[in-house]
Design a protein around this nucleic acid. Structure first.
Lengths: 235, 235
DNA sequence: ACTGTTATTTATCGTTTGATAAATGATACC
DNA sequence: GGTATCATTTATCAAACGATAAATAACAGT
């Protein structure tokens, strides 16, 4: 009931050294570009932590900004969420990763290990995996679109390489079965689930990430090769 | 503003045939046990679908009941959520599943296939996997407790059996490494992730579940055996 | 058939929350 | 240094939402 005057201060350090005469307990006027960037970044971290039903007031509090200011930059909360989706999901996939998988100058094992090291570092972050899961549970089609991308750009190439490594016929000769795609998913699932346990369940995980990825690729690739070789006994 | 009288009717068919003289557009008085059961079941389905931030009013609507009635059975919404957790998570794990894994009268492959067929049917349902993920994202410790249970009752036994099948030393002789537990997680992840794709992302998945499970066990177990055998070359 | 019990509903409260309008003040420009 | 611009804040609204109190009616027991 009693409106307590909240002492605000910049929690972001010096974003822009504008006449630091006083210790900025006063209002801070930033350029729209900088402020928008700050709101989007804050929203990503905030929604990743508490979910997309997090309140704009609490987000504003974390940004050390008043809640209506957010509405100057984003007309509705949904607009902000859409921007977060765009920011987090669009453009994280690198086209060159398909080439990395398909480059037969190195062993498939090495290629997969290198790919998943990069993918773990650049994609499977705390923010990404949580927002991805929140979006999935909310029924957004972003997940399905991303899965389509993965199948085209990652899983199908992996199946092709597994076939080649197992000296099995090319996909152009013998069509890819659904279970072979699922097998490629197994490799992916091993890595993905590790980060689900880490970032969503906050469970204990193997601390040596490089060793884990190497081991995960070894085991799941061995299995995929063995079953594929068994399915195509003749060369 | 205008309070529209909502025409209610029993959407549950005949729960209890109490003098079906009229077609029950009137208020239905159930025994507390039956009503509570109905609310809990409805809450499980409702929260699984829309998340734990779903509104009690909408839940009541789905139950064809008024919102305050829920509060007669559960003092707060959190109490209802806790009850949902208890109902969904507690007691779904069967103690005999550990024995199933450890029973060497059959091949490990067969045991794992049978276990995961049962586990998929009894545990990895739409309701369970979604509420489990919602709870994880909300930071509930239920997930961590469940993971501890899984490690003790499932993963450690699997590692023991993999060691035996690969003619490697027993865990009592050579301690289990973190990566071996992770390898057991790979098997689990393959199955689990299939249902995440199905129930959370609503993505297309292999329609033949039995075939999928058999194949998944084949591939991931092959990999686990190969790496374990490689790690212990001598018998 | 009458009556007491209590399951259920109607009405409503107080807070939360997304969103808007008006007031304020920091900065750029002359 | 004065002034216009507009980024930011203060004040507030309306709907949503959890929760409570009082009224109503279904059923059991006599």
């Amino acid at each position: 009931m009693v409106s307590v005057p909240i002492t605000r201060f910049s929690s972001l350090g010096a974003l822009k050294e504008t006449s630091p005469k006083t210790v900025a307990t006063t209002r801070q006027r930033l350029s729209p570009e900088v402020r928008e960037r700050q709101i989007v970044d804050g929203a990503i971290a905030f929604f990743a932590e508490v979910g997309l039903s997090g309140q704009t007031r609490e987000l504003a509090l974390r940004l050390s900004v008043t809640q209506p200011l957010i509405y100057r930059y984003f007309p509705t909360k949904q607009d902000l969420i859409d921007r977060v989706y765009e920011e987090v999901f669009v453009g994280r996939w690198r086209a060159e990763w398909s080439d990395l998988i398909s480059n037969r100058e190195r062993s498939l094992r090495e290629r997969l290990i290198e790919f998943y090291r990069i993918y773990a570092r650049d994609v499977l972050t705390y923010d990404w995996i949580r927002i991805y899961m929140f979006a999935g549970l909310a029924g957004e089609d972003i997940n399905r679109r991303y899965i389509s991308l993965l199948e085209d750009q990652l899983l199908v190439p992996i199946v092709r390489e597994v076939r080649a490594a197992a000296r099995a016929p090319k996909p152009s000769e013998v069509p890819v079965k659904g279970l072979e795609i699922e097998a490629a998913w197994h490799i992916h699932a091993a890595i993905f689930y590790y980060f689900v346990r880490k970032h969503i369940y906050h469970a204990k995980t193997e601390p040596d990430l490089d060793a884990f990825i190497e081991d995960a690729v070894d085991r799941t690739l061995d299995g995929a090769l063995a079953v594929t070789a068994r399915a195509f006994p003749e060369t």
